[in-house]
Nucleic acid binder design. Sequence first.
DNA 1: GGACGTTTGTGCGAGTCCGCACGGAACATT
DNA 2: AATGTTCCGTGCGGACTCGCACAAACGTCC
Lengths: 238, 238
Amino acid sequence: MKVEEKGTRGDGNQLLARMPAALADLMLTHLESVDLPQGMIIEQPDEAVEHVYFPTRGVISIVAMTPEGGARIEAGLVGREGMSGSMVVLGTDRSPHQTTVQIGGAGYRMETARLQEALQQDALRERLLHYCHALSIQTAHTALANAKLKLDARLARWLLMCHDRIEGDEVTLTHDFLSTMLGVRRAGVTVSLHILEGQGLVRATRGLIRILDREGLEEMVGGCYGVPEAEYARLLTG
Amino acid sequence: MKVEEKGTRGDGNQLLARMPAALADLMLTHLESVDLPQGMIIEQPDEAVEHVYFPTRGVISIVAMTPEGGARIEAGLVGREGMSGSMVVLGTDRSPHQTTVQIGGAGYRMETARLQEALQQDALRERLLHYCHALSIQTAHTALANAKLKLDARLARWLLMCHDRIEGDEVTLTHDFLSTMLGVRRAGVTVSLHILEGQGLVRATRGLIRILDREGLEEMVGGCYGVPEAEYARLLTG
DNA sequence: GGACGTTTGTGCGAGTCCGCACGGAACATT
DNA sequence: AATGTTCCGTGCGGACTCGCACAAACGTCC
């Protein structure tokens, strides 16, 4: 079960890959291959997490919410570049957020206790803390986007972030799902998608969005895309 | 220069207080007392931070921005319950955010390198990582508030968070400052403040806002206030 | 006490998004 | 083929915030 053995692009989780061999071995003994079906709830607010997940395919969504769940918004997006359960790296086993599988896929998981042990290793801890840093930058820029961007641009930003985390150019999601992530009306997503389609940036059909023009999308988002990605690259790539 | 020696409520930084004596001693040898004048820039985007700050009075603001600075929004608020330079705790010496002193005060500072050394101590690292966790929850809920709340409520939330971090009930800030933090027009802040005043929740005069009714403010914000505060209390208080 | 800069109050038209609501289209099941 | 379910398209009035612009109030410095 070597994480990086399959040859095609993007196989394996990028946090687990690029790790010193000794560490990789340590991790591998505790990693378990799992399926990540769409809709699976990975973490519930204020409940101890039993496993942390390292996706290799699919996208996981971290959702901030009020205690009663009256308001919900996506605060973080995780794909094969990251992991769920960042709070474990930060020394606690629960958080007030909910974490779900947004786009089905697969990955590895590890018992929380095993990760806590492995975090004794300085090199591993450093790498995962760097990821927590990148994730917090992502959240901050989501706050920025929520405050300053129009719905079209926020949608474009979300599609870009999602595109970074999948293989190919097709996102299989309904407008309804997207509206929850962005915290807007479903109908608003429909209209905004039409705008993006009108610009030739995407092509949407029932339950599926195909990204046609990444650069066009980036242009539409302006400076609100790219900062978290650059920070991730600085600390965790290469 | 003992951190907690002054007798009045709230003196001292709460991250530094409540620390095992051995750790406190370790820290104290490296802490330096400093003034935090309003407007002081503590961290610049993508520049190495030289010191981390532990306020005892005043409020520090972490601002997420686009690379050109075209869009800015407050992503985090830090008072005597916290520290600047969380990215150092997460293993890097820079971030794309800007950090400034929003309300003047005072505190302690420490050279980044000294903190990096001190973080070898498990107990200190754990405590500061817990703080990073609480801070990231705060940022996530700012994203939530930016997406879902009306301006009045966002303003009320900001005032509550600020009130938690100061002594007394008076916030000395202009509408213009507030508008930058909330990412809205200055005139919008003026109008929203009138609404809060109309409800008897605050009293505003030139450059000063007095909080009259905390509970009323909390009610106005709904569930979007309190979650990060509870998480902080769970991990770092008592 | 007059001049200046800062801060606050107010107004107006325009744009965005909301809540609600309904019709139609695509797919699944039987 | 018929039925039910999910998903998407569209419309309308209203609420909120924007951008712009100007006037009034306050404080400071000569």
